[in-house]
């Protein structure tokens, strides 16, 4: 009797759990869906559907200022991702393979950039650049992005290495491969999906970053998020909707590929 009751109660709980979760998914995705829908809306001002159009996307593609910001963003994202991926991967391998004095402390420092609020990182980098009289521009942005992305890359690659069988490295050396050959022929091919996954995430984070960049960007080094933010401060326009839709779309594709590789 009591068993039947508890089972019934369990099902009711299960149902509530399901409804709650799906409503939350709607909460997570509906705003983005609305944004995407309105990017195709003819109406300029009001949130009333007046017909389908590609107009706002055409406007975007003819905006030279925006194109300049996009180029800056791509330069920053590509270079900072490349540097952060190499440095982060080396770090992850060292942390996985070796024990060394101060490892625990270095570990904490390594993950600090992930948890320290962007605003603090932004103003401290700005203070640093001013202090050493470093000219703000694309280079200062790239340096900042590498600083936070090293941590993310190390985190993702290390998760991948966690399932890595160290005996494979020993087997390679046993068969005559020196440490470099072992890394190139065995370790790297096996962790490559994790490294690419980390690189894609680093790219997305760099491409999307507004706050830190806003402190360390100089004149003429406006990136896409900075441009977008200044547009957003003036209010909602269908062009921003279209641009946001594109950014969302690209980010999500990169994340999906990254997840697929990282699994």
């Amino acid at each position: 009797m009591s068993e039947i009751r508890s089972r019934k109660k369990f099902n009711a709980g299960e149902f509530t759990l399901g409804v709650h979760s799906w409503l939350t998914y709607i909460f997570l995705y509906l705003p983005m869906a609305i944004l995407v829908i309105f990017s195709f809306n003819k109406a300029r001002i009001n949130a009333v559907w007046t017909g389908f159009t590609f107009e706002w996307y055409k406007v975007l593609f003819n905006d030279t200022a925006l194109a300049g910001a996009l180029v800056n963003s791509l330069i920053v994202a590509f270079i900072s991702t490349a540097i952060a991926t190499v440095i982060g991967t080396l770090t992850a391998i060292a942390m996985y393979r070796y024990k060394f004095p101060g490892k625990g402390l270095f570990d904490s420092v390594l993950y600090m950039p992930i948890i320290v609020p962007d605003i603090v990182m932004g103003i401290s980098l700005l203070s640093f650049y001013v202090f050493i009289r470093f000219t703000l521009g694309l280079v200062s942005i790239i340096i900042a992005h590498v600083a936070f992305n090293i941590s993310f890359v190390a985190l993702v690659v290390r998760a991948r290495l966690h399932g890595y069988n160290k005996t494979l490295d020993e087997a390679a050396m046993d068969l005559g491969a020196n440490p470099f050959q072992t890394f190139m022929k065995v370790t790297l091919p096996l962790i490559l999906p994790g490294v690419v996954s980390a690189a894609l995430i680093a790219f997305t984070l760099s491409f999307d970053d507004y706050l830190i960049t806003s402190f360390v960007a100089g004149i003429g080094s406006t990136t896409l998020p900075i441009k977008v933010y200044s547009m957003m401060k003036f209010g909602v326009t269908p062009e921003i909707n279209a641009l946001s839709t594109l950014i969302l779309f690209i980010s999500m594709i990169l994340i999906l590929i990254s997840q697929r590789l990282g699994a």
Binding site: T167, L168, E170, A171, M173, D174, A177, N178, Q181
Partner: peptide, 15 residues
């Protein structure tokens, strides 16, 4: 180092 030794190993889980 292992890669300069004239021995080879059969590992427990084959590797």
């Amino acid at each position: 180092p292992p890669y300069r030794r004239n021995v080879n190993t059969v590992f427990q889980n084959y590797a």
